[in-house]
Nucleic acid binder design. Structure first.
Lengths: 231, 231
DNA sequence: CGCGGCTTTGATGTTCATCAAGTAAAGTGG
DNA sequence: CCACTTTACTTGATGAACATCAAAGCCGCG
């Protein structure tokens, strides 16, 4: 118990309420006894596409990107993941290797649990199994829906979409530091770097946003929402 | 037992090996006792976006499309689902309403289980829970990966991709009847109907495929694979 | 300090959506 | 069963959206 709370404050871990709501103290202790916390700096690769799936990965703090390499050597970003949101649940249960790479796009803290422990917990605790299924389902729903939304929009709409994602969903502030390079934004929404930059510049010229390097200020949020929605 | 095998031959149901591998005869009987089989004709709407999630739906025979309406009134098809593949697992566990519509694109037979029964089974049978999680995970992985593949391709590659999907994955034959209209293909791969037709015509002129209405013949499969892969 | 990667802008060409117009096929009501 | 309507399919012409190419400034880092 003491040892547990020394390693990390599992007792106060947000995972407990969200993910382990139906897990007893004893069960939690068992799972947490074999956990490892790892800190990553911005840009660090946490998982590489094709890596053997070892542990069950959970994001405590920070931001990650999930990406894969296309057969012609370019990168595609499938989603940006924040704590609570996606627990790198993708393909953990369906494959023996990761289908995607995971990279920290801001300083991050992960918690790695023993995969077999988690599997045992699923087997033994039906309520936890249901919670896990729900979380997994939500995660994929979100990715699929988001991907369809981006697909249906034109360049301007897509860039607006990304800006609003960071402003509304991640930072909850009109001013924020973009954690992605222009190139990464392009990889995320499926366009070229040049056109991302061009579109951002146009938004600036039209007084919709302010840009100082990576620092973005949303000036006319209504307008940006309208562009995101109707092109 | 007799009654069970009269309703449908649950004992031989393919679901049993794939999905219910770790479910006992008694458990299976309990779940199957409350099942309903429903047949649908081509074009029939099985589930409409926004419908309350009632049962746990499983495809026994046929082909379905999953689609949603965009805010500007167009349709987007997210995936084509065949038996075994996607068990309309999407959003069943994460939402109270369906996020997508489900429509039969060929004559189909579905099996509807009581959702609470399935949930109980998850709670009581840990091995089934793991099987379900794996299936769910595979399904979403497939959709996400497929969506990324389509996204990275140009028109020609996308059309080739769809043709090969039906030829290689679904019908396993060089000759087949397209179950989708040109318009639906367009909705699936994110382009206009006109350009789908134009691209098909070009493939025909180049001697890559044969077209008689909905009947497609893959003549030069290698070439089509190459187009799908490298544009 | 110089090299490589990120950023920016402009010019150019390609890809693709849109518009228009016509044919074929399939359902509908008298 | 046939005229009628609607829906699916097809082709061409045009312009808009977007990628590509080119060139230069900027910044961090060894």
């Amino acid at each position: 118990m003491d040892e547990l709370s020394e390693k990390c404050t599992c007792a106060e871990c947000h995972m407990r309420t969200l993910f382990f709501a139906h897990v007893s103290k004893d069960e939690l202790q068992k799972v947490c006894s074999l956990k490892t916390e790892v800190a990553y700096g911005k840009g660090d690769v946490i998982v590489k596409e094709g890596d053997k799936i070892g542990g069950f990965l959970y994001l405590q703090k920070g931001l990650l990107k999930l990406s894969r390499k296309t057969s012609d050597g370019r990168d595609q970003i499938l989603c940006i993941s924040k704590p609570f949101d996606f627990v790198s649940l993708l393909s953990v249960f369906s494959a023996s290797e990761f289908n995607y790479s995971v990279t920290a796009i801001s300083d991050s803290l992960t918690c790695v649990l023993d995969f077999n422990m988690v599997k045992d917990l699923v087997k033994e605790n039906g309520s936890f199994a249901l919670d896990l299924i729900q979380k997994l389902s939500e995660t994929s729903d979100q990715i699929i829906l988001n991907s369809l939304e981006i697909k249906r929009k034109h360049l301007h709409g897509r860039v607006a979409h990304v800006l609003l994602f960071f402003s509304d969903d991640i930072y909850k502030s009109a001013v924020f530091e973009l954690p992605l390079s222009r190139k990464e934004i392009a990889e995320y929404i499926g366009m070229t770097t040049e056109n991302v930059i061009r579109t951002l510049s146009e938004f600036r010229k039209d007084g919709i946003i302010g840009i100082e390097g990576k620092r973005i200020t949303i000036i006319d949020s209504d307008r940006l929402h309208s562009i995101s929605e109707h092109g």
